[in-house]
């Protein structure tokens, strides 16, 4: 393990230790439960199988929405990048939609899709699509005068310039958009699960509050953090390997 990772792990342990002490000495469990109490609650939920179920529900919603949103966002971004007229026609629409937070669509989505899985998939797909699309467009907007000139000098037509010069330059932007999209998807997911779901980590948090189980709330919160770290690390490791030559900044 690297020195940075050891230090980072140390910081987390120290944070948990301070929290444990503060929780035991200052706060009542109903306000701030100790990490040990949260772990015990998490373990109990694990043994009953309830925790796995919530994680699985949240993770599957994220996976479906993330995959669909990444594909759709990259497809639209590349379409806009390859065909300027498409971009001119559709970009105003994108600019119009970009300030609407995905969660604002929750109510109409509930009306259209009900509280089943489809509604969450739609919301997360929308969240991811937007981030990937906007980032891809930003990538295409970057000017590389000499690269473009070299392409013309060395005989690239407009399709070849797109395929061999503009597209590769945009790959890191597409992947960066996917990473941001995944982060934003967690927000969308948790709110959607709190407001319109019977399962999932968001629902676990909200339900625990209703049942006055502060420990349960924190199990849900910690579950989100762990799920997020795992998903992001997996994404980073996979893309680093697959897109080595693009020198991703992670």
């Amino acid at each position: 393990m690297s020195r940075g990772a050891v230090r980072g792990g140390g910081a987390v342990l120290l944070f948990l230790l301070v929290w444990e002490i503060a929780a035991r000495m200052i706060f009542v469990p109903a306000v701030l439960p100790a990490p040990s109490a949260i772990a015990a609650e998490g373990w109990a939920r694990w043994l009953s199988g309830a925790l796995q179920w919530d994680v699985l529900m949240s993770a599957s919603r994220l996976a479906v929405g993330f995959a669909a949103g990444s594909l759709l966002g990259a497809f639209l971004g590349l379409l806009f990048g390859a065909f300027a007229p498409v971009r001119r026609i559709l970009e105003p629409l994108v600019q119009f939609l970009r300030f609407i937070p995905p969660i604002a669509w929750l109510t109409p989505v509930l009306i259209w899709f009900g509280i089943g899985e489809e509604g969450k998939w739609v919301l997360i797909t929308y969240t991811t699509t937007f981030m990937v699309l906007l980032n891809t467009l930003a990538g295409f907007a970057e000017q590389h005068r000499d690269r473009m000139r070299a392409a013309r000098v060395f005989g690239a037509g407009s399709w070849e310039t797109f395929r061999h010069v503009r597209l590769p330059a945009t790959v890191p932007w597409i992947l960066g958009g996917m990473r941001i999209g995944m982060g934003n998807s967690f927000q969308t997911l948790i709110v959607a699960e709190m407001l319109a779901s019977n399962e999932g980590l968001g629902q676990l948090i909200l339900n625990s509050r209703l049942q006055l189980s502060t420990e349960g709330m924190f199990v849900g919160i910690a579950g989100i953090a762990v799920l997020g770290i795992l998903a992001d690390s997996a994404f980073r490791a996979a893309t680093r390997r697959m897109f080595q030559r693009y020198r991703l900044g992670w």
Binding site: H144, R147, R149, A150, H164, P168, Y246, R247
Partner: peptide, 12 residues
């Protein structure tokens, strides 16, 4: 053309 500077090489 051999360009001034190295911005015309493809980094990937």
């Amino acid at each position: 053309v051999i360009f001034q500077g190295d911005d015309s090489l493809y980094p990937w």
